[in-house]
Structure formats: C-alpha cells, structure tokens
C-alpha cells in the first residue's frame, strides 16, 4: 500500500507552486475521500527549512480515486 501525507487545505495552499528541491515542485492532489495529500518522496526530498513542518504531517494510506478516461 502506498502511503501519503495528509494536508489541511491551508497547508495545501501553502505548498502549491513551491519548490521542495531543485527543479521539483510540490504537487498536492486529492485522494478518493477528497483529502489533500503529498507524497512521502516530497517529504524525503525537501531541502528547504521553511517546509520542515511537512515532516510532522500524519501519514495515511493512499486511496486511489476512480480512473476516468
């Protein structure tokens, strides 16, 4: 099971459009329950101290929304 980090809407807004590493941007998305999440790769790869708080985010299982062609 893929694990992801749960965000509040405020936290999501803070991360949108921000770099977590060189040439890599945060990309909050919603899961099947409309929760905003980021990946553990973003947490592990973050090099910017202003976003160190993401290390404290609760970790949940990823729930894949239905695929729509």
């Amino acid at each position: 099971m893929i694990q992801v980090a749960l965000l509040t809407v405020t936290q999501k807004d803070e991360l949108v459009g921000q770099l977590f590493a060189v040439d890599s941007y945060f990309n909050p998305v919603q899961d099947c329950n409309d929760n905003w999440i980021i990946s553990t790769q973003e947490i592990d790869g973050n090099i910017y101290p202003q976003f160190d708080w993401i290390e404290q985010l609760p970790i949940i299982d990823w729930c894949n929304p239905p695929v729509v062609i």
């Binding site: 890599s24 941007y25 990309n27 998305v29 980021i38 553990t40 790769q41 973003e42």
Partner: peptide
C-alpha cells in the same frame, strides 16, 4: 520538463 510531486 517541470517536475511535480514525488518523481524519483
């Protein structure tokens, strides 16, 4: 390319 999210 612009990378977003947890690309390895």
């Amino acid at each position: 390319m612009i990378w977003v999210g947890g690309v390895t």
